[in-house]
Simulated assay, not measured.
Amino acid sequence: MRVMVIVKATKNSEAGVMPSEKALTEMGKYNEELVKAGIMLAGDGLHPSVKGKRIQFSGNKRTVVDGPFAETKELVAGFWVWQVRSMEEAVEWARRCPDPMPGEEAVLELRPIFEASDFGDALTPELRAQEDRLRSEVESQQRKA
């Protein structure tokens, strides 16, 4: 199963405070363990929401809202995508994570990523074929990059 591990934003991450060399070293070591174990598929940190935008949908209307966004505890500062056998395995790996926000209360949120089988009959054979084709195309583009 694939799991997205969401690193929740904090006051410091939203203020653009960069991690220390020590924190980067610890996180680099942890990421190396994830990669060697075949767990980590992707992961990155995100700039503060002041540099972001939101697109709000209301029927056919689209409204662009510039950051920063309120409610820091609801924002995302970074993420991983992991391939694990179970949510329990993901929790085990998350517990080993170095403090992602030293000096502040940090939160990791683990969420399963939908798989094709989760959609049942709504994912017709044609839609499944399209999904497979698009996934292959993305992988091909990533290999070229």
Rank of each mutant, 00 (worst) to 15 (best):
P112I: 01
R128M: 07
G52Y: 01
L24R: 07
E14A: 13
K22L: 15
G103P: 11
V5H: 00
E115Q: 06
M1Q: 14
V81Q: 09
C97P: 01
D121M: 04
R128T: 13
A90R: 00
F79R: 09
D44T: 13
A94M: 01
P102W: 08
R143A: 09
L41T: 07
R143Q: 12
A70W: 09
A37E: 03
A90F: 02
I39Q: 00
W80T: 14
G103I: 10
S86Y: 11
F119T: 07
L108S: 04
P102C: 09
T25C: 06
M27H: 10
V35H: 06
N31Q: 11
K22W: 13
V7P: 00
R143M: 10
A145F: 13
D121I: 01
T25R: 03
E21F: 13
A129C: 11
S13M: 07
E104S: 03
W80A: 12
A94H: 00
R135C: 08
W80R: 09
Q83D: 14
R54Y: 03
V107W: 06
K53C: 14
R135M: 07
A37M: 11
N60I: 08
L24M: 13
P19E: 14
T72I: 03
E89W: 02
E131L: 12
R133H: 07
Q141T: 12
G67R: 02
F57Y: 10
M4S: 01
M87A: 06
I113K: 05
K73Y: 14
V64S: 10
E21I: 09
Q83Y: 15
P48M: 04
S140D: 03
P68D: 06
E115W: 08
G28M: 12
E33H: 09
T72A: 01
V84N: 05
K73H: 14
M87Y: 03
P112C: 09
P48E: 00
K8N: 02
S13R: 00
P102S: 11
F119C: 05
K22H: 14
A15E: 12
P112W: 01
V81E: 10
K61L: 04
I113W: 05
A145N: 15
F114G: 05
E131S: 13
D66P: 08
S20G: 07
H47P: 05
K51M: 14
I6G: 08
S86M: 12
N12D: 15
E33R: 11
L134P: 05
S136R: 03
G52K: 04
E139F: 03
I39R: 00
G59A: 07
K53L: 12
G16K: 14
G52R: 02
P112Y: 02
E92A: 14
A70V: 11
I113L: 13
